[in-house]
Design a protein around this nucleic acid. Structure first.
Length: 295
DNA sequence: GGGCCCGCAGGG
DNA sequence: CCCTGCGGGCCC
């Protein structure tokens, strides 16, 4: 039984997908399987319980795979995380990172301890494509995507980074390309009679390119400057990590436009088409595609 | 699962 | 100081 909203969603998805396909004539084919960071352990109990000395390294995991999409062969199924090859500078930076993150004693956590500026275009030194964090906060500390909640980080020169976390139901993710929705047009404060203090909320008005972050994305579509992209576990895509957040490298914005959003009232949203830059490690895929309703 | 509430970073 | 925002914890 396809409700009206579901039909619109399907139509939007089909339209977005078709557009992305045209961007993907040179799409890569090699897609390794995702490596889980948290196999099955319930993971949901981290407070200040000081024990667990056998904790997974909650720091910015170095990239887990290495082959570039150009040379998939090499059959290196035993990819250890030995990506720390020579290169002393990175070595130094990594040590600093370790120090900064190794306050696992009892310190709640100290923010504002970045060693790199997130407000730059392109990659961040020492953070490889494929890096993984459990939380947005940790990702922010590594300067890949600064906002703890917001999906878009950008300035007047364009966007620095975006987070794909499934916030908009008609966005399409093909891995090498995806569509993305802008910010704004939501009632985060609720109404006068029913005041809220929310971080996300349903659409309640048109989005606009006057919005600072939307404008940054639009700018990037003109300048073609690279944008860092992270995918989160809430994203409905086979390219989404099963848990946490993963840095998936650099994309350019190929197109910016406005269209009717999925909301019942048909408020306008800003849409953007991203395309992944070549010569980056391939995107891992998970075994189960969250898009296929498996439940 | 949903609802609510909250801190925080970032920008004006 | 104010506001926003594709989190996250907690409660039910």
């Amino acid at each position: 039984m396809a409700s009206k909203g579901e039909k619109e969603r399907a139509a939007n998805i089909a339209r977005h997908k078709e557009m992305l396909m045209k961007l993907g004539l040179d799409k890569p084919t090699f897609e390794p399987k995702e490596k889980r960071h948290r196999p099955a352990a319930s993971s949901k109990k981290r407070k200040s319980t000081n024990e667990d000395s056998t904790e997974p390294p909650r720091k910015a995991a170095r990239a887990e795979s290495s082959p570039t999409e150009n040379e998939p062969e090499s059959t290196d199924t035993s990819i250890r995380r030995s990506s720390r090859i020579r290169r002393q500078k990175t070595e130094m930076e990594e040590k600093k990172l370790l120090v900064l993150n190794d306050q696992n004693d009892s310190e709640p956590r100290q923010t504002g301890k970045r060693i790199h500026d997130p407000k730059v275009f392109g990659s961040i030194p020492g953070i490889d494509v494929g890096a993984w964090w459990e939380t947005r906060e940790a990702c922010s500390n590594d300067a890949i995507h600064a906002p703890w909640v917001g999906g878009i980080s950008g300035g007047k020169g364009g966007a620095y980074s975006v987070a794909l976390s499934g916030g908009y139901e008609d966005d399409v993710d093909l891995g090498y390309a995806f569509t993305y929705t802008g910010s704004g047009g939501r009632d985060l404060k609720g109404t006068k009679n029913n005041p809220k203090n929310l971080r996300t909320a349903p659409q309640s008005s048109d989005q606009t390119f006057e919005d600072r972050t939307n404008k940054a994305l639009q700018r990037s579509s003109e300048t073609k400057k690279p944008v860092r992209v992270i995918r989160g576990f809430k994203l409905k895509s086979k390219y989404a990590p099963s848990e946490g957040y993963r840095y998936d490298g650099l994309y350019t914005i190929e197109k910016a436009w406005m269209e009717k959003g999925l909301n019942p009232e048909g408020y306008l949203v800003c849409k953007f088409a991203f395309k992944r830059l070549p010569n980056q490690p391939p995107l891992p895929v998970r075994d189960t595609d969250p898009t296929e309703e498996t439940d």
